[in-house]
Computed example of a mutant assay.
Amino acid sequence: MDPLVLVPGLLCTEALYAPQIGELAGAGAAISVADHRQDDTIAAIATRLLAAAPPRFALAGLSMGGYIAMEVMRRAPDRVTRLMLLDTSARPDSAEQTANRRRLMALADSGRFDQVTPALFPLFVHEDRQEDVALREIVTQMAAATGPHAFIRQQSAILGRPDSRPSLAAIACPTTIVVGDGDRLTPPELAREMRELIPGGRLEVVAGAGHLPTLETPGAVTAVMRGWLGAV
């Protein structure tokens, strides 16, 4: 099984993938989680990832992690044996998305970081999981571990990311795209767009999940990852 590099999303830590790490490491996978908190550009984060990664590896990124994964594919496609893009988009932000990011950055910069997670949680999870106390606690803990300064760096990186759609046709490794059927931040139509642009891309729509299916429906995502890692 290829070494696996996982890239978390905005405000997320390795806890985003805890269910998958537990299962896949037990099956013999060598797993590392990329550091996406230190830099304020997608390019710099990708450079840091590549410096720490094995010579060749499978790569999976969720949301912001997907933006980083697509940058890695532009920089070092020969090092990636297979690619998984979860709940992400190849498009740049819309004007509305940019305004929302800047509003949340202003909260964090003015000492009101504690208001960021309550604003984002309803968008992070499926509509049926809005009252999931355990899930909310995990998201809150990941945000606290990230902190306001890293959050601002992450948002700055996201705001400056390129349009990845023109580069998707060059992806030649086996690629699986995963999206929760109730994802409101990067909905299934954006996943279908990526599937159509990536040669041979496969799409898995996860029932009952929103933007964080690795935590919302962990068994389903782990099963998809197992099949992806074992695919010839």
Rank of each mutant, 00 (worst) to 15 (best):
L104H: 08
L229N: 06
L16Y: 02
A18L: 03
A51K: 14
G160N: 10
L107H: 06
A18F: 03
A191Q: 07
H149W: 07
L104E: 09
R91S: 09
L16H: 06
T186E: 07
A223T: 14
Q141W: 05
R184D: 05
Q97N: 06
V125M: 02
S164F: 15
L135H: 09
R226T: 15
M64D: 00
L62R: 03
L4I: 06
R48H: 14
P166D: 06
A30V: 10
L120Q: 12
A18T: 02
E204N: 09
R101Y: 13
E196Y: 02
L11V: 00
E14I: 00
H36V: 15
A231L: 08
A172W: 01
R165F: 01
V116C: 05
P19C: 05
G210I: 04
T222G: 11
A27D: 13
E127K: 12
E131N: 14
D109H: 00
A34T: 04
A223E: 15
S167D: 14
W228L: 12
G9E: 06
S89E: 01
L50Q: 11
L197T: 07
V178S: 01
T175V: 03
S94D: 09
A143L: 03
L24P: 06
I68D: 14
D183I: 09
M225V: 04
C173W: 08
G22N: 12
D40Y: 01
P118F: 05
P3M: 09
P148C: 03
L10Y: 07
M84F: 05
P148H: 11
A223N: 09
L107Q: 07
G9D: 04
D39H: 15
A95V: 11
Q155V: 04
P54I: 04
I198R: 12
R37C: 09
H36A: 12
I158T: 10
R161H: 06
V5W: 08
P174N: 06
A25T: 14
L85M: 05
R129L: 15
R195K: 14
R48Y: 07
A46N: 11
L24R: 01
A209H: 13
S89F: 03
T117F: 00
D78R: 13
A150F: 00
L120Y: 01
V179I: 07
A209W: 11
I68S: 08
I45W: 07
M70P: 05
R153C: 00
L123C: 01
S164V: 00
L135T: 05
I198S: 08
T146Q: 07
D181K: 10
V80W: 07
L212H: 01
G147D: 11
P162E: 12
P166T: 11
L24F: 01
D109S: 13
T47Q: 15
D35V: 00
A15G: 00
R226H: 13
A220G: 01
P199Y: 12
A15F: 02
A170N: 13
L11G: 02
E196K: 10
E216L: 07
P92C: 01
H211S: 08
G160K: 06
A53Q: 11
Q115R: 14
F124S: 07
L215D: 04
Q130I: 04
L104P: 06
E71D: 12
S94R: 10
R102P: 00
A169M: 03
G65V: 10
W228H: 15
A209N: 13
